[in-house]
Simulated scan of single mutants.
Amino acid sequence: MASTARPPVVPADELKSFSEHLQSSTTILTLLGAGLSASSGLPTFRGAGGLWRTHTAQDLATPWAWARDPGLVWQFYNYRRHMALSVQPNRAHIALANLTHHKPGFLTLSQNVDGLSQRAGHPLDKLKLLHGSLFDVKCSDFWCKYKEQNNFTDPIVPALAIPTDETDITSNEARRTRELDISDTGVDLPEISLRDLPHCPECKHGVLRPGVVWFGEALPADVISTVDNFIQSSPKIDLIMVIGTSASVYPAASYVDTARAKGARVAVVNMDRNDEPASGMMEGDWFFAGDAAQIVPEILKSVIGETPEYSEL
């Protein structure tokens, strides 16, 4: 009977050369993108035509949308929080979190806002969120500096609760039972007043907003400064891993190029072989094509050992 053994997740020769380099590396950068979350089964927040209900992301993810209708904006982000909490960190998230305990000079830059790296136990001092997080909140009052990290309460306030029956088509249960698209407008969203939105516990009057970077806002200065200081203070960067992203736009592309200039070899993990960094692949780089949840634990195994499945305990 013919053998049905599956081919290895990573070719043996590539795994060997990468593992040897990883073991000898002391300064490592990792850049994460949406492809890593796709391995957890996180669905897109957009429905047919790129819409959420009848809105584009640009309609809702802006300071002007917030000023116009914070209740609608919070319903959009509460839905995204709810969907992110409906899935679990995958083994790639866990493997990267474990690598921080074996390589002190390891820093992860994430373009994801879904909180999966945090839930996997990735230390916050080793995880820099370029676009913020759905689960960070901050006061929208100009004079108040209140911020809270890793608020995983779902819903964040009772008024934003998503029903689990068919009265609201954006609920997970309703989508499973009726197979409706999240952009369906058959059921109106409720209007939520300011008094029912989450309020700042510090100043008492400001409304809390999602701690994500909206269109028209600058990337967080403290995050960019920390990353720049890490790079500038490192005499040499040994490795940069690019996982689930093409790293073709700023600032991702600049980090790949800067790491290369400091001697780094590049390892890309992506489903699509066409998703290369803007500067392309060079001799000595690695491209591991496939599911990050399978590949990342395999290529880090020589340093961190076996990677378990996620457990909340």
Rank of each mutant, 00 (worst) to 15 (best):
D13P: 07
E20K: 14
H21M: 02
H21L: 06
L22N: 06
L22F: 02
S24V: 00
T30I: 02
T30W: 12
A34I: 07
G35L: 04
G35M: 11
A38C: 04
S40V: 03
A48W: 09
L51T: 03
R53M: 03
R53S: 01
A67L: 09
D69Y: 05
Q75S: 08
Y79C: 07
R81M: 04
A84Y: 01
V87L: 07
Q88N: 14
P89D: 02
P89I: 13
I94M: 10
T100R: 03
G105C: 01
V113E: 06
R119T: 01
A120P: 10
G121Y: 14
D125F: 12
D125C: 10
L129V: 05
S140L: 10
D141N: 13
W143V: 15
C144H: 11
K147R: 09
F152L: 03
F152K: 06
I156P: 01
A159D: 04
L160N: 05
I162V: 13
I162P: 00
D165G: 12
E166W: 09
D168F: 15
T170K: 11
S171A: 07
A174K: 01
I192V: 03
L194D: 06
V207T: 09
L208K: 02
G211V: 11
V212H: 04
W214K: 05
G216S: 08
S225E: 12
S225V: 14
S225G: 13
F230A: 03
S234P: 11
S234I: 03
L239N: 03
L239T: 07
I243N: 00
V249G: 08
V249Q: 13
Y250Q: 12
D257V: 09
T258N: 14
G263D: 03
A267H: 02
N274V: 14
N274D: 13
D275V: 09
E276Q: 14
E276F: 12
E283Q: 15
A289E: 13
A289V: 15
Q294T: 11
P297G: 10
E298V: 14
I299D: 02
L300N: 07
P308S: 04
P308I: 12
E309M: 07
